[in-house]
Structures are given as C-alpha cells and as structure tokens.
Nucleic acid binder design. Structure first.
Lengths: 147, 147
DNA sequence: CAGTTAATGCAACATTGTAGCATTAACTGC
DNA sequence: GCAGTTAATGCTACAATGTTGCATTAACTG
C-alpha cells in the first residue's frame, strides 16, 4: 500500500497490542470521522466506497475487537441492529440523543446529568443514563424523508 | 374449556374489539403477573409450563397485537431481543432509580429531566429518559445482602 | 527473509423476526 | 344450540443480523 501507516488510528491500534491491519485502520478512521453512530452496513458501504471492501464477518470481528480494546463502543438501535461509535464507553457522564426517525445516537457532551441532580437520602447512584428521544437536526431539516 | 373467561385479561382484550382467544388471555396474564419484562422465549416457556404451548409465530403476532392495542409495550434489550411488559407505554416525565443490587426500579417523581436541559439547536426532543443506577436506600442499609 | 501466528475470507450455522397460506376456532345470526 | 363467516392459529419458508469452524493470507518476529 502507498502510505505506511503513521495515522493516529494506526497508533491507537498498535498501542493496544494488536496487529495493525488495513481493516482495523480503515474501520477506526471511518468511525472517527463520523459524527453519528454507524451500523455494519454503513461501515461496509464506506469501506467499499474507499475501494477496500471486506467480508461481512471480518467487519463484525473488527468492530467487536475495537470495542473490546476500548477504541469504540456499541449501542443497540430500535431496529435491533448494533451501531458503533469511535471512543470508549463513556460510562455515561454525558447524555445521548436518540433519533426516533433515523435511529442514530448522538452524544451530547455538554449535558452531564450526574452533576445536575440531588437524589433523596439513602440513594447511592453510581452512574446515570440520560437519553433524549425525538428528531435529530438532520432529520428535522429533511421532513418527510423515509427512515 | 373449563372456565369461561371472565378474567380481567379477557375483559381487556374484549374491550379492544379483538377475539378473545386463549393465546391472548394467557400471554396477557403472563405479562401482567411478571414484575419484569419478558422476551419471546420467556413467554413461550411459561405458556409451555401452563400446558398450552403455542407456535413461535403466534406468539410474535399475539405480542405485537397486544402492543398495538396498548395492552402491552415493548423495549429493546441489550441482547437486541425485544422484551414486553403489560400496560401501555409509560411516557413518564420523571426519572427512575434502578437498584443494581435488588433490581427494583423506583420512581423519582421530583426529578423531571425535560425541564432541566437545553439541547443544541436543531434537536427536537419529544421525551427524555433519565435512569440512575446504583444502590437504593434499602440495600444501602443492609449491606452484603445478595441480589 | 523465512517462520510463526493473528487476521482474514469463505461456508455453514444460529438467533430473531416476517410473509404466505391452509386449517382451526371464536364470534354472529338464526 | 347450530351453521356460516372470518379472525386467529400453526406450519413452512424466508429475511436480517450475528456467530463458528477452518483453510488461507499477511503482519509481525528473530
């Protein structure tokens, strides 16, 4: 391949002790460059666009590996398909927005529920999950678009 | 059949205008008698225990019908399987506390996330779900108790 | 640069859910 | 009650999503 991989994605992968393969680099970069969560088909489509299609199974294993290493995390959509985002599980220090139209999940980094509320005496919260449901900015613009 | 169905479940079903079949009565009663949400396998297992096994497809259709009629509602679990509970969608506006020790869910009426946060421009939230995870007041008192 | 072995790709399988259609049984009118 | 109508059921086949086994490829190691 032309460029020996000195990309940030390649470094992250190397730091995990795994082999630095083109599949992993490409998938991680795709996730990193997407503002929204992507499912397997989304990732597969972008890999194909970039001229490097991969087997369906490889994609599953690559994504699972990235999650295992903490380089990505996974959510379940309403269509019961898994969606992936770059970055480790956030342990929910921020809120999420779940679009009921397109099914995408977006992070709302600025909203941190744990800092906002005081629980009744005796309750010992360890984490909080705040999820907004509604229509995301993209879907709000293109009304009438099918899911 | 021995008992003509005068059960509350049968009345609910009749009130929806649907036919009052044993499958619907049995499934609805199973959901009503369960404190937790159940997936298809759970329901199928209980039907079998009660000596009235049903086809997998019938179960899917029965559960979907109950949801459609507002007699049950559905959530997607982390295992990407659907889970069902009796009663319509709660649409509650208050937060919940989920005790990771005893598994109970408690309502925190005083906490209403929708009134607290402003989302970035473009986002149109319709509802918010705020769930705290941790140890509830009861379990906090009796440390060391098993789940 | 050759050897080792993780990663890949292929085929088959598993799980969860859906569609078509013949049969059964819940309701309706008598 | 009883027969007719048709919703509900159950069977078969199929679709979508995800997993397992195994031979081949290619990333790392010395």
């Amino acid at each position: 391949m032309p460029t020996p991989d000195t990309s940030p994605a390649a470094h992250l992968i190397a730091a995990c002790g795994g082999r630095v393969t083109r599949a992993r680099i490409a998938v991680l970069e795709i996730l990193q460059n997407s503002p929204r969560s992507l499912n397997h088909d989304d990732v597969a489509a972008r890999l194909a666009e970039d001229g490097m299609p991969h087997d369906r199974v490889t994609l599953y294993r690559t994504l699972d590996w990235l999650v295992e290493q903490g380089l990505a995390h996974r959510v379940i959509g309403p269509d019961r398909a898994r969606r992936f985002k770059a970055g480790g599980e956030t342990r929910s220090h921020h809120a999420h927005f779940h679009c009921d139209r397109c099914g995408h999940v977006l992070c709302l980094e600025s909203i941190r529920p744990e800092e906002q509320f005081t629980l009744p005496a005796g309750y010992q919260p360890e984490r909080a999950e705040l999820v907004f449901h509604g229509t995301c900015a993209d879907c709000g613009r293109q009304r009438g678009t099918k899911i």
